[in-house]
Design a protein around this nucleic acid. Structure first.
Lengths: 217, 217
DNA sequence: TAGATTGTTAATCGATTAACAATC
DNA sequence: TAGATTGTTAATCGATTAACAATC
């Protein structure tokens, strides 16, 4: 019942459960046993039952799990039903792609402001939002109180802006810059995305190819 | 000495070591002890020494590690020094951002072809490469023999194209689509990127905020 | 040499898997 | 009821940390 702290390993698996359950639902299925789900996902039935029971008993003996119910429970656990306002800083290739490509809304995220320091980008409209100058971040945040900042800027630029954002009330970062936020700011929530780390891992696997089934975190 | 199989946990940490060592080198440092590196990276000295000793004894008692040497050793372990040809499929926002934003070359990756099924994109030039039609993948691969495919296409499109690519000799995928490649194709190397999973994890952390220092895989 | 720090073995901790009684 | 499958405890496995002898 979420009394004690849930381990990171479990939390990292929740989005994947959510994704698979969504697909099963889309296929018109209504119930599934931990055994069948484990086969489809490539993990053990035991692990699935252990993971889910960190949060409560969502299944029923002899029946299994109701797919729709379970998915919505996981959505609640992940907080996808809670509205969260976010600003995105850095509208280069990556920032634009993130803005346009991600389905923020169905996870409860609302992008309310886009920023860049490059004059030539300011004024451009992306996804119905004008790109503002980073000089206007202060005023914008005081007025609109976003809780989350998405950083699509280089490491060097991030160092300066992070402190400012925290002072303005930002509580969480989705961090594509390689600046290490938690190093200087404890108790701020950070999710780092290191695409280059992922690419290097691919390189390793390719070079040391050893025909093994990958584990899912 | 890389005799037995290296655990996934260790491999996932290597790119981060590589990154930190690069920064130390850029700062003009030449040597570092496991203790000091552990302080900077937020892990234990013991873990660093254990990790590195999976691959060999790169340090020296009483001295520590030579930063430049250690970084280049890790580069070799990761295979960053081995040239790898790659094609990228799907030149929407995400594909374009990946093409332009990633520093492929310094990891040994060479992007040799870009593809999309959308006529309006075909012919456009990105990073000095023309976008080709996906119909031409067959011919292109037979001629140029890429080993890697980067998939920036939707799940539905991926299902069809993956088998074709494997038949054409593709050995590894950097997979931004949510299609589960290993499900049907064992012994193909895959690195999945699920940005939405990362975003959901941020949502969870934010909702269940509990002032804790994040662990680095 | 003395001090520092590695490489490596042993101890601990946490996560995964197995087993089974509870129960739908 | 009988069969299926959960929830949960106990056993195993693997990863991290601690300790220390080797050695630069």
């Amino acid at each position: 019942m979420q009394s004690s702290v849930i381990s990171n390993s479990v939390i990292k698996r929740l989005p994947r459960y959510y994704r698979f359950l969504g697909e099963l639902k889309a296929q018109g299925m209504t119930r599934i046993s931990s055994k069948e789900l484990s086969d489809r996902m490539g993990l053990t039935a035991s692990q699935i039952r252990q993971d889910l029971n960190c949060f409560g008993g969502f299944g029923q003996q002899g029946y299994g799990y109701n797919i729709e119910l379970l998915q919505s429970e996981i959505a609640k656990i992940l907080g996808l039903d809670v509205p969260k306002n976010a600003i995105l800083i850095g509208m280069g290739n990556l920032g634009k792609a993130v803005t346009m490509h991600m389905n923020f809304e169905n996870k409860g995220f609302h992008i309310i402001g886009l920023f860049d320091s490059k004059e030539s980008l300011v004024g451009q409209v992306v996804k119905n939002l004008p790109i503002r100058h980073t000089d206007d971040i202060d005023e914008f945040c005081r007025e609109n109180r976003p809780q989350i900042a998405i950083l699509c800027i280089p490491k060097e630029a991030a160092g300066n802006i992070v402190g400012q954002l925290i002072n303005l009330g930002i509580k969480g970062f989705w961090n594509f810059s390689h600046y290490d936020i938690t190093l200087n700011h404890k108790d701020i929530v950070v999710e780092n995305v290191h695409l280059s780390d992922s690419l290097m891992t691919l390189s390793y696997q390719l070079i040391n190819k050893q025909t093994k089934i990958p584990t899912f975190r």
